[in-house]
Design a protein around this nucleic acid. Structure first.
Lengths: 199, 199
DNA sequence: GTCTATATAACGATAGAC
DNA sequence: GTCTATCGTTATATAGAC
């Protein structure tokens, strides 16, 4: 049974940073993406970076803490992307810059992205984790410029589409350049749709 | 370590069906969606349906075989939906009927859909499993009417968007009726986009 | 089809030396 | 920061009775 307990979050309040911890989190994120959270053992993480389990446990008291750290890193990546995009002049430029950066992020980690974020354990954690929801809220406002269910769903679909498409069976045979170009093109079109349809 | 070995697929060539097997697969699919494939044990499956592990092993020689059976069921569901939609008269009606049914499927199993299909183990399995790719290929042709990378990516994004949005942090607080309505509306708009943008 | 019982291995986690 | 060694638990999987 795999659950991310909230105690693991609290315990990590002040984010300690060290090369050893970073190595662990990086290795863990890759393994989570390949085998899922539940399918990744501390032994696998330890083997990947060439240490023993005990060395890992010296940095993280529980496996849950490693999951939380991986999520935190994902969060930081998204926040950085938004900060960078926000430097643009107009609202439209902000949106365009953000879109490009998000697509690039997804492409860059093509064999990881959807896998890490798509894991049931992660999905459930993300959905009810306040800090993550704040980041997602900011993201959707920057992307859609609006608010309310329609804008929320538009942003939800767009981010799910970008993250999911890069690992999609229909895309595995396509080169990264093709995927990026199509992703950007179709995403722009999706955002440009006037919201005044009535179905 | 959790992998779906191809031997498990071959071994199951002729799909045996029985109430006992169906009960196991149903319980397993729910648990996979909640805890991931790697986070689900045979003990959990056995407990859910109120039998012992040995009873489960009598029906499936390995855990991998249960995963394959769950995938096969997912495949059958998708195929049924496409068969039903294909009964429509015009190509446009086929697409619309298919869209409605796919959205309904996602809504109906809202707490499961993205979770089951999003699991890293599943994603990797789907991406390289031939029978699944054939189903996905048929799906994308029915949805987009076209072919080539642009149509492929459009279908990939759309199916990822629908499956991913229902469990998205931005959607968890929205009622199923709202989600369904927005999903349908935005999906229609996405498919209606003329493909002749140049970015 | 389901059970009890068991084999063998891996799991998360801890103690204490260096 | 990393090690060896170990504890208790759980995992997958099998044998054989009913």
């Amino acid at each position: 049974m795999v659950t991310v307990d909230s105690a693991a979050v609290a315990r990590q309040g002040s984010i300690r940073r060290s090369p050893a911890r970073a190595r662990i989190v990086t290795a863990a994120a890759g393994l989570f993406a390949e085998h899922g959270v539940g399918g990744t053992s501390l032994q696998m993480i330890a083997d990947t970076i060439g240490v023993t389990k005990a060395a890992v446990y010296h940095q993280f008291k529980t496996k849950s803490e490693i999951v939380v750290a991986a999520v935190e890193e994902e969060l930081a990546r998204l926040t950085a992307v938004m900060d960078a995009a926000e430097a643009e002049a107009s609202a439209e430029c902000v949106r365009e810059a953000l879109l490009v950066r998000i697509v690039d992020l997804a492409i860059e980690r093509r064999r990881m992205e959807s896998a890490l974020v798509g894991d049931p354990v992660m999905v459930r954690y993300f959905a009810y984790h306040q800090p993550f929801r704040q980041v997602v809220d900011r993201l959707y406002r920057m992307l859609t410029g609006g608010c309310g269910p329609e804008a929320q769903m538009r942003a939800a679909m767009l981010t799910a589409a970008i993250g999911g498409a890069v690992m999609h069976p229909l895309a595995v045979d396509l080169g990264s350049d093709t995927v990026r170009a199509q992703l950007l093109d179709l995403a722009r079109g999706f955002l440009d749709q006037s919201g005044d349809r009535s179905g």
